[in-house]
Write a protein that binds this DNA or RNA. Structure first.
Lengths: 141, 141
DNA sequence: GTAGAATCTAGACTGCAATCTAGGTCAAGC
DNA sequence: GCTTGACCTAGATTGCAGTCTAGATTCTAC
């Protein structure tokens, strides 16, 4: 199934390579109903994916990596699966997630500033050899 | 212990309020040796914290919230506890964490761009009423 | 036609980081 | 002095998100 694809059929291993997900994760996602359609099988029962499944998985990975829980992806998948008519709900879900990602970035940036401040302090003290007694959390340790 | 502090003694509940951590988490942190010193106790066995413990916990929270695992915080605490002389190691640990935080922010920003793109697409289609058929992961769903 | 790689299922297991439980003890206000 | 709320320990449990196992089957290449 990996070779000279007659068109676009992909094995689970191909999809794993293409998405960076493990085969276990792909089967898990299917159990969790994160796909947009029932993945077809060969006569022998092996999964046959199409490129659109890979596309979808890449989006799912983005959502997951940016902190959306499986349950959120599942809700989005369910909306998409249920066809046209619920676009405002999909939009709301995405907007909500966008907000949480922005908040996350803001939090990380705030933490980064503090951490970077510590780094600068330590660099200075290590360079000067004046490091003794360094520790108290702000702004020293 | 919460009232008119004679100086600065804090109960576990006070510290929980001050740091946003739960009392369970504070006891857990102590078992994990994340503190810079053994927390003293009253005659009756109750923990007595000082403001410096709160300061330290606030830094720990920043490190945790920015993705440093407990084991990392523990290593840092151990370095600080073991006194002057290892500042270059502390610096290395903080620099390493700073790098991972920057990477995390970069990843989130990349995801955010994709998500925001979807949001824009959905907004447009919902507004136009042309939403039918929207779904394929890039750039539609 | 057969060896070896890849895949299948159901279900058990992992790791992290708390969080909660049970069964008490302690302390502060009235 | 007593009630009520905060606190104590040790250990069990939770939740999330995979990840792995075992044992069987299928597919691919020679």
């Amino acid at each position: 199934m990996s070779e000279h694809a007659t068109g676009n059929a992909l094995s689970i291993g191909d999809v794993a390579k293409a998405t960076g997900l493990g085969v276990h994760a792909l089967r898990f996602f299917e159990r969790e109903e994160l796909f947009l359609r029932p993945i077809p099988r060969t006569a022998g029962g092996q999964r046959v994916y199409g490129p659109e499944d890979v596309e979808w998985l890449l989006l799912c990975s983005r959502l997951r990596d940016s902190g959306m829980p499986i349950a959120g992806v599942k809700r989005f998948a369910r909306l998409v699966r249920s066809g046209p008519g619920n676009e405002p709900e999909r939009l709301a879900l995405l907007e909500e997630h966008e907000r949480t990602v922005r908040d996350k970035i803001a939090d990380l940036t705030a933490s980064l500033e503090i951490i970077h401040g510590k780094v600068l302090t330590y660099r200075k003290h290590v360079k000067d050899g004046t490091a003794a007694g360094l520790w108290s959390p702000t702004p020293s340790p």
